[in-house]
Design a binder for these strands. Structure first.
Length: 210
DNA sequence: AACTCGGGGCA
DNA sequence: TGCCCAGAGTT
């Protein structure tokens, strides 16, 4: 199957119809809360992150408060999220940088965000998109896999796929499309046994059945 | 490019 | 039990 521009448009139309009310699964009440939640979400389900932040944020939901909390106590709070020592170290360092260099605020700047410890390209894109409503597409493993299988965007690195998606997806849909691809990757286009038999995109997917 | 960090989900 | 993850940093 040849994935033309028209086919890609059809793929996107179907995805939108499948996941009409796509929204972030993480619960947060400020850019800082979102930043922490996304750092915690690496290799951890959003449901579990929400449980952890539901306990943590009432105690501390600012860079100053978490810095006061200290690494040892933070490690206990986020223990259930996995990689807790490394994440706690990164979060504490990030809080100090936010206090020292950004007046305790989360900068609405992709480059600045990505320089923070524990914040990579994916996390920075999520914060820009979700917290600051800027056009950005965060490419995680689900987005990467689904985009490649559909040939919606092809690449061997997340950055390549991100650029490819930016070309074929209307700017106003970037934030939503991220969620369509994630949901589809989790529920249907799974890494191991993709459910091609019942996939609504099978007709427009070159990887279907393969 | 390969490895580490650390738990849980799931067959 | 064993394998796989809604990543990022280091070597």
């Amino acid at each position: 199957m040849r994935v033309t521009k028209a086919v890609k448009a059809e793929q996107l139309r179907i995805l939108r119809s499948l996941y009409p009310n796509a929204r972030p699964a993480l619960t947060f009440q400020s850019p800082f809360e979102l930043l922490i939640a996304v750092i915690l979400s690496a290799q951890c389900t959003d449901a579990r992150v929400n449980v952890v932040t539901g306990r943590l944020f009432p105690k501390a939901n600012t860079p100053a408060a978490i810095a006061v909390l200290g690494q040892a106590e933070l490690e206990k709070e986020i223990h259930d999220c996995g990689f807790f020592r490394m994440k706690a170290k990164h979060i504490i360092e990030t809080c100090h940088i936010l206090l020292d260099e950004y007046d305790g605020e989360v900068p609405a700047d992709f480059e600045a965000l990505q320089k923070l410890p524990g914040v990579g390209r994916k996390t920075a894109n999520v914060v820009m998109s979700v917290a600051f409503h800027m056009p950005a597409i965060a490419v995680d493993t689900h987005v990467f896999r689904v985009a490649n299988r559909l040939r919606l965007a092809v690449g061997t690195t997340p950055l390549e796929v991100e650029k490819g998606l930016q070309k074929v997806i209307p700017r106003e849909d970037w934030s939503d499309a991220h969620h369509w691809l994630i949901l589809h990757g989790r529920q249907v286009c799974k890494a191991r046994k993709p459910l091609c038999d019942t996939c609504a995109l099978a007709q427009v997917c070159p990887s279907s059945g393969a």
